[in-house]
């Protein structure tokens, strides 16, 4: 019987990537993972299949993230009529990975998770379907929508940053 540490070590880098991408930043992701590890440590005796430890942890991280996002209730949404009154923002500077991570945080959670599992963790559609308890066609749909939304969010972020915005526009 493997210990918690033995189960965790081989999958830890993937859990870090997943947490950071789900949370939208390295710092928030590391805090999220720490919360999830505390929960996992308490519940590890309920884990039936040690081979499924990674997927079990991904679920715990996802749930911990949902709790965190709920606590940020009533995010500042802007009505259509108000959008035209937004003043020009100060330029922002992002590296590509930070840009994508920030944009991912704005993608709806199921779509976001599908994109992260597929693009960052390299999981197959079949594996994601099992993880999300959804059909493969639903996962494909989420991936497609998630990518589109990611592109929109990246575009929105890059319009705030002149240099990167130009690079982004050229790359499109």
């Amino acid at each position: 019987m493997k210990t918690f540490e033995e189960l965790l070590k081989p999958v830890y880098p993937e859990l870090v990537r997943y947490s950071r991408a789900m949370a939208g930043s390295s710092a928030d992701g590391d805090d999220l993972l720490q919360d999830a590890l505390l929960n996992a440590w308490r519940k590890v005796h309920t884990l039936r299949d040690p081979d499924g430890f990674k997927f079990w942890m991904l679920k715990i991280i996802k749930n911990a993230n949902i709790s965190r996002e709920r606590s940020r209730k009533f995010k500042s949404w802007i009505g259509l009529e108000a959008i035209q009154r937004i003043p020009a923002s100060e330029p922002m500077s992002y590296e590509d990975k930070d840009l994508v991570r920030t944009a991912l945080a704005k993608v709806p959670k199921d779509q976001r998770e599908a994109v992260i599992l597929y693009e960052i963790l390299g999981m197959s559609v079949k594996e994601i379907a099992k993880q999300q308890k959804a059909s493969e066609s639903a996962v494909k749909n989420r991936l497609s929508r998630g990518r589109k939304r990611l592109r929109v969010e990246v575009s929105a972020l890059t319009t705030l940053e002149k240099g990167h915005g130009q690079a982004f526009a050229e790359s499109c």
Binding site: K148, V154, F168
Partner: peptide, 21 residues
């Protein structure tokens, strides 16, 4: 499935997939 993503996004995703603690 739409696989076309801008290069900046592709690059960002690749960086995230290579990230190590």
């Amino acid at each position: 499935m739409d696989k076309r993503l801008p290069k900046a996004v592709e690059h960002g995703l690749h960086e995230l997939s290579e990230e190590q603690p």
